[in-house]
Nucleic acid binder design. Sequence first.
RNA 1: GGGCAGUUAGCUCAGUUGGUAGAGCGUUGCGUUUACAUCGCAAAUGUCACAGGUUCAAGUCCUGUACUGCCCACCA
Length: 911
Amino acid sequence: MNKELPKAYEPQNYEDAIYKRWEESGFFNPDVCVEKGGTDANAKPFTIVLPPPNVTGTLHIGHAMMLAIEDLMIRYHRMKGDKTLWLPGTDHAAIATQTKVEKLLIEKGIKDPKKELGREKFLDEVNKFAQASHDTIVNQCKKMGSSLDWSREAFTLDEPRNLAVRTVFKKMYDDGLIYRGYRIVNWCPRCHSTLADDEVEYKEQKTKFYYFKYGPVIIGTARPETKFLDKVIVVHPDDERYKKLQGTKFEMDWIGGKIIAKVIADQASDPKFGTGAMTITPAHSFEDYELAKKYNLDVVQIIDEDGNFTDAAGDFVGKNAQASREEIVKILADKGLLERVDENYIHNLSVCYRCGTAVEPLPSKQWFIDVNKEFSIVNSKLKNIKAGQKVTLKKLMSEAVASGQIEIIPERFNKTYFSWIDNLRDWCISRQIWYGHQIPVWYHGTCQEVSEKVGPGVSENPIVSIDEPAVCPYCGNQTDGGDLHQDPDTLDTWFSSGLWTFSTLGWPEKTVDLQTFHPTSVLETGYDILFFWVARMVLMTTYTLGDIPFEKVYMHGLVRDEQGRKMSKSLGNVIDPLDSIAKYGADATRLSLLLGNTPGNDTRLSEEKIAGFRNFTNKLWNMARFIIANSKIKNQNSKLQLKIQNLTLADKWILSRLDATVKDVSENIENFQFSAAGEKLRDFTWSELADWYLEIAKIEGDKEEILQYILQTLLKLWHPFMPFVTEQIWSEMFGIDRMLMVESWPHLVIPTVVEESLNDFNTIQLIITTIRSARADNKIEPNKKIDAIISAGAKEKLLTENSAIITGLARLEKLTIETKAVKPENAVALVCGDMEIYLDLSGAVDIEKETARLTKEVEAAEKFVTVMKNKLANAEFVNNAPPAVVEKETQKLAETEQKLSKLKEQLSNLK
RNA sequence: GGGCAGUUAGCUCAGUUGGUAGAGCGUUGCGUUUACAUCGCAAAUGUCACAGGUUCAAGUCCUGUACUGCCCACCA
């Protein structure tokens, strides 16, 4: 101990070993903390479940930010003595992962992986990939210093989570909330699966917009290929142009020859858009489908699951619809039906959020969750909702937040959340992919009804069951003999992640974990998955447990590059957290993501910023190095008994500043103001402790105890932000057996927070900076010592007591302090509050420069005096403003007037 | 079309109850005194987007405008 530390902190030399020590200590696990006495058995729990990263690859800088913020909260609460659990896990991310593996297999030369490998072998490949990806992710989490309880790690697709999924599915089905229906769905022809509404993204695109003669009207469309079977024109009921046509039928020529079309009137048609007349395509548009239902029109599918024409398209059957567009336009043009083409139409193309392929709306039989259906809730711990009450899922979702039981931070996201719920349609949960939770529904082949979807010989009657059913409830027969078929579809990945807060804690078992740690305390995530995930967790938890999943939701912003662009491989502006850790250390990487931003807002990151925090890490290291080197105390106890009566002004000042910092930092962390907390801590550490107090300590000496106290407190405060360097310094002082991560969070213990000491110390600081400034202005070399005389007035005693500090920090040879001093010839006079300082520059005074400087000061003071005089002469101000404000302003005026007269006097002396 | 943010120093951003604007980086000058050049000391720079309003007093509250970004809906 107390060995000489290296001059520079090299994070690479320590980080991995420190993480290993933490992990081996078991302290990431709250049960171990209780066992070893670090946490009281009855302590209040603090829980965060890690938003499970997708096993699609590696973690990006956004994940790093998430880890930094969550680890900050977790370490803070652990040190505070809470029973703290941070539960890790990963998400199977069904479509994303399957797509990625398919792509990799194709690159390896397997042309059609699913066909060639079959379901089982293909899933083996996916699982292999997911495992590798998982290992990478776990390693990255550790590199970041995340104090996750790995003993509780979960995966959205592991067996316990699968049981939870099946159990919830069954419960929802029994409550009538899950149904199978034939509806228009978003279909991705590439992923070959349905997508939920919010999995569809919109991309602006310039495209051709065609106008065709359609019987008596002109219609416009960007997608002529869908118009094959259109035979209904819709106009607005009040549109004068088409009034006469309403309700008529007529024969006309169209793509495939003569058709009979009719005209209906409906509000859905916008007279201002295009020609005000439109045809409808019930099978390939949500809106048209609604209209078709309303007017009882045929719904004929013309484009199939591969994006090709169905046999409804006659000669075009089997051809790719989109690719046939020009051909179809040509047919119509040849018939003389093409009116004109707008080449610069801006179209909002809907695309798959995972692969970017254009989404094709088409009718399909799928599983849905009904969000508007009433059911009676069995248990409820929700405010305003009683057990047995009739509710809908929508109501549960909005009530949980509206009641204030869940608090979203920043608050403005409430509005986004509610508007999403208002517009929510039934949630399509079945996906036609292999990787994921297979739907717990079976069909019994010997039953009579035949399903086209499931295959010939398979019953249409679903058997919804947590486990494979032994008996068919429809026919009453045993199901063995291979005549039982499970629905081949899998569930939307968000179905399982919606259960995350409670499935990870062991539900459906009634576990101790579930009782202890649920509802979780904070859900921390990026605002971009508010709908995808946060809203769905609220849905699933309120429904399943009748309780909220978390008390607070804290949303962080996106990490962008230094120009505010999204980071992407194609732009080459990606900052890889692992690179950053290797180059600057995990602590610097964390700080760069924690400081200098505000909740819910995007933040810009640059390598310079990270480098800046690396510098700070090193600064802290060196401060510690200095304090440790000057400490004779061995095996220090952090609960030091300071000899209060011996404190100097500087001691009192730094201790009261430290106290204020402890208070501010704690409050800021509690209020999710992590950036503010870190900035205050940095300012204290660097600008007050390092720049002032450590320098003073060198002058005043005999500070071992107080420096130890400050350092230990500081390390604790910094630990949640930068766990590695603080832990390393701590171990340099106490050895590796005593870990900082489980030390208790500092509280306010200094009984002598003397307010006056702040003001008095500020006076000393002002005198020193004033002298330094004058030295720099007059080009006095830093190591040249000069004489100074201070005319101190009432502050003579204060200055005399601290003359050593002034002499040292202002680099003076001889300092004379008098109540009323006389300015020597050739000395420069400085005004410092109500005092004056005379510096002997040995004739080195630059008269011109001094005149300029003083003139400037006089001008500023005069301007201020004028403003203040006007203000105080204003009767309305004096009468209306609070007396304290008036008094303060009066005092300021008096001080400035005094200063002004001194400045003027000096100026005239100079001339 | 609806909604939400933002507009403050060259850059990135703070500014939490309204009381003569702050930090980091960068820039300029000087510099190695018993931690630290990944450092120290000092300096410069702002009609707080614009226009109204409330108030004794507005970066801060209200209304409107402009621009930027994002979200949602939708474009037949």
